[in-house]
C-alpha cells in the first residue's frame, strides 16, 4: 500500500514536471521553462563569485554521481 503510494506520487510529480514544461513552451506562455528558471538562478553572483552557477552545477553533478556511480 505504502509502496504503491510512493510510486504513484513520484510518477505524478514527474508527469507534473513534464506538464508544466509543456505549458511553458506554448506560444505566449507566462510560465518560464525549467531552463529559464535555471538560467535565472545561475545569474546570481556574490561579488566576482558565480554562486548560482557553482550551486546549480554542483547539484547536477551530485545527482549524476548519486544515481550513476553510487
Amino acid at each position: 500500500m505504502m509502496r504503491t503510494l510512493a510510486i504513484s506520487g513520484f510518477l505524478a510529480s514527474l508527469v507534473l514536471f513534464a506538464a508544466v514544461e509543456w505549458a511553458a513552451r506554448r506560444e505566449g506562455s507566462r510560465i518560464p521553462s525549467l531552463g529559464d528558471v535555471c538560467a535565472y538562478v545561475m545569474r546570481y553572483e556574490v561579488g566576482p563569485v558565480p554562486v548560482g552557477r557553482i550551486g546549480v552545477f554542483g547539484f547536477w553533478w551530485w545527482l549524476g554521481w548519486h544515481f550513476l556511480a553510487r
Binding site: 510560465i31 518560464p32 538560467a39 558565480p50
Partner: peptide, 30 residues
C-alpha cells in the same frame, strides 16, 4: 567549461514572472 567563458551562452532572463510558482507544484510533491 561552464565556469569559464569557453562556450557561447544563451541569454538568461532578467526576471521571472508570476507563472514561476507553477514549478513549485511538482517540486513540492517530489
Amino acid at each position: 567549461l561552464g565556469l569559464g567563458n569557453r562556450v557561447q551562452r544563451r541569454p538568461a532572463p532578467r526576471r521571472l514572472g508570476r507563472g514561476t510558482v507553477w514549478w513549485l507544484l511538482p517540486a513540492a510533491l517530489f
